[in-house]
């Protein structure tokens, strides 16, 4: 672990930063009827405030400033710790720290769920674990192949946990790994040690792991957000870690199957789920967010089907549906056009 971030993780700092980003700011965003801009600015203000806080009381503040991947962890439920990702596009400035990552502590050991975009983010996660417990990290779970979720895995290799992923994760990593590593190089100065870690344990359909008096149920889904989405259900608290099967406030990205995702959303929340941790955005009951996401995906599907039926080609469909009515997602411009393309390529086969 590098020196800078460690000193930022001392107990006093943790107390200061405990509830960042403030839940209220996320609540505010849910109600906001604006496109990207305003909320992104608000997030930026939050982040700046936090960095100011870091620089005022953290001895190696310049290192902290240079490494904005060191966002704080907070305990959001009994033994469940999360680092909320920024609701921003991935940039060199934020080191691609945009996804929610964290860990779940059992009586015997710790299971990590996603590790972020870089080796350094993985290191920060490991430091956050060590800050609250001495128990070993027994499992490191990847919710899916995307670079903002499982490219900090390398920092856990020395601890020799079981790396777990969807049965299609190895193929996806082999196809995308080098490409993502290239992107990470341009995103992050601390990306040098970042590497691809293939899972050692694959989930075909469902699996159960035990971290000591705490069973975690893993489920591998059919193609939806990607073709290798894996969720983690904590039986102790009823919290479902949904990964990118759920985006809150931020535009969902179709990189697997739009039809599959719409179907998966109907099954994502069995009755025993009390809360849902999305891959991006705030923890919540999940129900409203799932409805909002589903409404968007359904209207996208309807629009693209109509465009195909009208004989529009892919490029024409993107233009035709650019202003498709729907939720005022954060980062809409980053995702809507590509969602149309992905949906088109899938739906023209119906």
């Amino acid at each position: 672990m590098a020196t800078g971030p460690v000193s930022c993780n001392d107990p006093l700092m943790a107390a200061h930063l405990h509830r960042w980003p403030p839940i209220s700011s996320f609540d505010g965003m849910i109600g906001q009827a604006v496109r990207g801009g305003e909320s992104t600015r608000r997030q930026f203000v939050c982040r700046s405030a936090m960095l100011a806080l870091l620089s005022s009381c953290c001895p190696s503040s310049s290192a902290a400033l240079a490494r904005q991947s060191d966002l704080p962890f907070q305990e959001i439920e009994d033994g469940i710790h999360v680092r909320y990702g920024l609701q921003e596009a991935m940039t060199a400035d934020n080191h691609g720290a945009i996804a929610n990552i964290g860990f779940i502590i059992g009586d015997e050991s710790v299971a990590v769920v996603d590790t972020g975009t870089t080796y350094a983010q993985g290191e920060s996660l490991m430091a956050a674990v060590r800050h609250v417990t001495d128990k070993p990290v027994s499992h490191v779970i990847a919710t899916h192949v995307h670079l903002d979720h499982c490219f900090g895995h390398g920092a856990f290799e020395d601890a020799a946990p079981v790396f777990i992923g969807h049965h299609r994760l190895p193929g996806a990593l082999s196809e995308r790994g080098d490409f993502y590593l290239e992107q990470i190089k341009t995103l992050s100065l601390d990306g040098a040690e970042t590497r691809v870690v293939q899972p050692g344990f694959l989930v075909d359909d469902a699996a159960e792991i035990d971290v000591g008096g705490r069973k975690l149920l893993l489920k591998a889904w059919p193609a939806a957000h990607t073709d290798n989405d894996l969720t983690v259900f904590d039986t102790r608290t009823g919290l479902l870690w949904a990964g990118d099967l759920l985006f809150v406030d931020r535009i969902p990205i179709v990189d697997g199957s739009i039809n599959g995702w719409i179907d998966v959303l109907d099954e994502l929340m069995p009755g025993d789920v009390s809360q849902v941790m999305p891959g991006h955005g705030a923890l919540g009951s999940g129900r409203e967010a799932i409805e909002q996401q589903k409404a968007y995906l359904v209207s996208l599907r309807d629009g693209v089907r109509a465009a195909i039926a009208d004989g529009l080609d892919m490029t024409e469909a993107v233009a035709e549906l650019a202003d498709l009515a729907g939720p005022n997602w954060l980062l809409r411009d980053e995702g809507h056009g590509r969602n149309i393309i992905a949906a088109y390529a899938e739906l023209e086969w119906e």
Binding site: G171, D227, E334, A342
Partner: peptide, 14 residues
Amino acid sequence: SGGCAAPATKNNAQ
């Protein structure tokens, strides 16, 4: 393109 887009398959199984 930026973000998580990759020049790869989306739904290999299908």
